[in-house]
């Protein structure tokens, strides 16, 4: 479809190993529309994170890809690293699981956000600082004008993830890739971050590729779902279809394994 923002078509990722090349992602296809969240769910080793890295050209050395990845019609696969650098953080940005290892401990969060902004948009330091403060306000960090000069360790885990989201959104990307963004967070903080992501999406219209192992999280945030297992796309459909009428045995097994909190009947 032409109105799709982001199209992944038959993506295969092959990694070299000591036992020869292994396909860690096999013929994966999905699309993300504007305003839409697509959840990619799977257990460890399912290839869900590799799919995200392939999109951004961040695969380990020696990895080979085939297929097509298009953003707004422009092919991303096979582009040079230099070329992709202008895409990453700009048209596509990413939020990872562990904000502490994604932030540089030596620089204030304000500097890190404004660096990102100036790399892609240029402008003066003072203008970028203003952008950083606005970005922090948008993710509801209280007292943003003061907090902009704080270092990562001065923030709690949830607040750090807000900083990461602020940074990811400062260049108004058309696609946000969130790789297990709430996995390391406490459940009450997770609820706040999920709410924040939903709110920001409805105001900015950013498409989102949300990667997680947690089916309950996917159910609360995604409109469409791709289930992966050992590199294979096993099921792809609307969230409603995947959760209410899964076609694949593996999806059913995953759903059955999720411990429930509201069930009436317990063994």
């Amino acid at each position: 479809m032409s109105d799709e923002l982001f199209v992944v078509d038959n993506l295969t990722v092959t990694l070299p190993t000591s036992r020869g090349p292994v396909d860690v992602v096999k013929n994966v296809s999905f699309t993300v529309g504007r305003d839409e969240t697509v959840g990619i769910v799977g257990e460890s080793g399912s290839g869900k994170s590799m799919t995200a890295l392939a999109v951004l050209g961040l695969l380990p050395r020696g990895a080979r890809t085939s297929g097509s990845v298009r953003l707004d019609g422009a092919e991303l696969l096979g582009r040079s690293d230099r070329d992709l650098r202008s895409v990453r953080g700009n048209a596509i940005s990413m939020v990872f699981q562990d904000p502490l290892s994604s932030l540089n401990p030596y620089y204030t969060v304000g500097l890190q956000i404004s660096e990102m902004y100036r790399t892609h948009r240029g402008g003066s330091r003072s203008a970028a600082r203003k952008v950083a403060i606005e970005a922090l306000e948008r993710v509801h960090i209280p007292d943003a004008a003061r907090r902009v000069d704080h270092y990562p360790h001065q923030f709690s885990g949830g607040m750090r993830q807000r900083v990461m989201i602020a940074m990811a959104l400062c260049c108004s990307p058309s696609l946000l890739i969130a790789d297990e963004p709430t996995t390391a967070l406490d459940v009450t903080v997770q609820a706040q971050i999920l709410e924040l992501l939903g709110e920001l999406q409805s105001t900015t219209g950013t498409g989102m590729m949300f990667i997680t192992h947690d089916l309950a999280v996917i159910s609360s945030i995604a409109q469409r779902v791709l289930v992966m297992q050992s590199g294979d796309p096993v099921e792809y459909g609307t969230a409603e279809q995947v959760f209410s009428a899964p076609r694949h045995e593996y999806t059913r097994m995953l759903l059955d394994a999720v411990p429930r909190i509201d069930d009436e009947v317990l063994s």
Binding site: V187, Q190, A191, L194, D214, L215, A216, V217, S219, S220, A239, E240, F243, S244, L255, V258, R260, I261, D262
Partner: peptide, 8 residues
């Protein structure tokens, strides 16, 4: 977080 109870 909960799986949509109606779907489930």
């Amino acid at each position: 977080p909960r799986i949509n109870p109606e779907w489930d």
